[in-house]
Simulated scan of single mutants.
Amino acid sequence: MITTRDYFILNTELPFVSDDVPNASLVGNISEADSAIMRYEPDILTKTLGYPLKKAFMEQFDYNAQTKLHTIKSGADQKWKDLLNGTTYTKNGVDVVWRGIIFTDEDVKRSFITNYVYCKWLEKETSKHLGVGLSVPQAKGATRANPAYKFTEAYNDFVDVVVGNFCNGYSDEIGTGVRSLYEFINDKNEESPNTYPNWMPKDFKKVNIFSI
């Protein structure tokens, strides 16, 4: 895993990632987050990078079989570290930034991988969320709430970070200066086609609340 359950916060918070969850040790909920990451993290890396580039990327990591964690090798080429952790560079004479596949924003760990994992989990587990369906606590018990709102927010954030203004193999718009994954890779491949070769990304579109 590149990401961990520590990333599940804000609009991707899961009910089973804390030791404070009642009876978590009895129902095995702590490991459910790790299982979801191990299932869907490779999936989204393949979809955003394409298999050849994802394979080359993952070869830059050391793997700990006990913790299931991947750690980028100290000797990995800088371009792989930039892809993972982000970098600032110049685009059309303007300083822009790619924040990274994983990054920290004011001590908050963030990754588009987590948004994707959360959305896949939510699609699969909607009827089981918090044991009674996705719920909003009230004075007497809880009532079911529409999970589409949480799905839509998390998924559209994912699309912003991954795709941004990239369209049909092109993105020259600077916007706010924060580059998406696709914009970053495209920018670097325009500088040198061999930076991230064999890139075969899947297109993602934003959704509305009726998409789940």
Results as ranks from 00 to 15, higher is better:
192 S>N: 15
40 Y>D: 08
79 K>T: 13
168 N>A: 15
1 M>S: 09
73 K>P: 09
24 A>M: 05
188 K>I: 11
58 M>D: 06
189 N>V: 15
116 Y>C: 10
138 Q>H: 12
209 I>D: 03
152 T>A: 11
47 K>C: 04
204 F>D: 04
162 V>Q: 08
71 T>L: 03
102 I>P: 14
64 N>G: 04
75 G>T: 12
58 M>C: 08
23 N>V: 02
107 D>S: 07
155 Y>L: 15
62 D>W: 00
132 V>Y: 01
89 Y>V: 06
26 L>G: 03
17 V>C: 10
193 P>F: 10
117 V>G: 09
147 P>G: 06
40 Y>F: 15
106 E>T: 14
80 W>C: 11
198 N>S: 14
2 I>F: 09
102 I>R: 11
12 T>Q: 10
156 N>A: 15
79 K>P: 12
36 A>C: 08
210 F>R: 02
179 R>T: 03
126 T>V: 13
45 L>Y: 04
16 F>T: 04
185 I>S: 07
201 P>G: 06
84 L>G: 08
152 T>N: 10
74 S>A: 08
69 L>D: 00
184 F>G: 04
68 K>L: 11
62 D>R: 00
192 S>V: 14
53 L>H: 09
143 T>D: 09
174 I>W: 09
18 S>A: 03
50 G>F: 10
26 L>M: 02
14 L>Q: 03
59 E>P: 00
166 F>D: 01
159 V>F: 13
65 A>G: 00
98 W>G: 04
70 H>R: 09
85 N>K: 08
96 V>L: 07
52 P>T: 15
196 Y>C: 11
128 K>Q: 09
50 G>S: 12
18 S>N: 11
123 E>T: 11
153 E>P: 00
120 K>G: 04
13 E>S: 12
123 E>C: 07
178 V>N: 09
125 E>P: 05
155 Y>P: 06
203 D>M: 14
1 M>K: 01
80 W>T: 11
123 E>N: 10
48 T>Y: 03
50 G>N: 11
11 N>K: 14
158 F>S: 14
